[in-house]
Amino acid sequence: MDKPSYVYVTYILATPEKVWEAITDAEVSARFWHRSNVSDWQVGSTWEHKFPGKPADLVGKVLEADPPSRLVMTWAGPAHVDNPDRVSVVAFDIKPMGEKTRLTMTHSKLTPQGLKDVSEAWPAVLSNMKTLLETGDVIPDPFGGIHG
């Protein structure tokens, strides 16, 4: 296994099923991520990260899917999907911890530019997911307007 570039952990007051749904449901993911994650989440299927009705911003393949515990997918810009040097791997591990759920996001095989982009984006995404699941609301515009 490659040494991961980032290992981000957040504890969310919600069930593992709700956390799984937040990542994999097109409508729920759009609420905190401002893009929808779209796939049937079967191993070998493609997934897309996109605005409804627009071309995908990110695409990849589902490598592992064990709801609601573990989801692993490849991750690339649509132009780089066939270039192994530009395809990274994201794993979500979801584990109940008492009344909370521990979500661990591991991002591996990142390029230097990818490292920079991702280090800025993930904390906002994960914090916003936690806020949505715990309060039913989101922080307005966590990305400072880049998605408008």
Partner: peptide
């Protein structure tokens, strides 16, 4: 292997600054 996990700091930032 140990990693910096910035999520709690991001949450503090969101609460008081952002």
């Amino acid at each position: 292997l140990h990693y910096l996990n910035p999520i709690p700091i991001h949450e503090a930032h969101g609460r008081w600054i952002a």
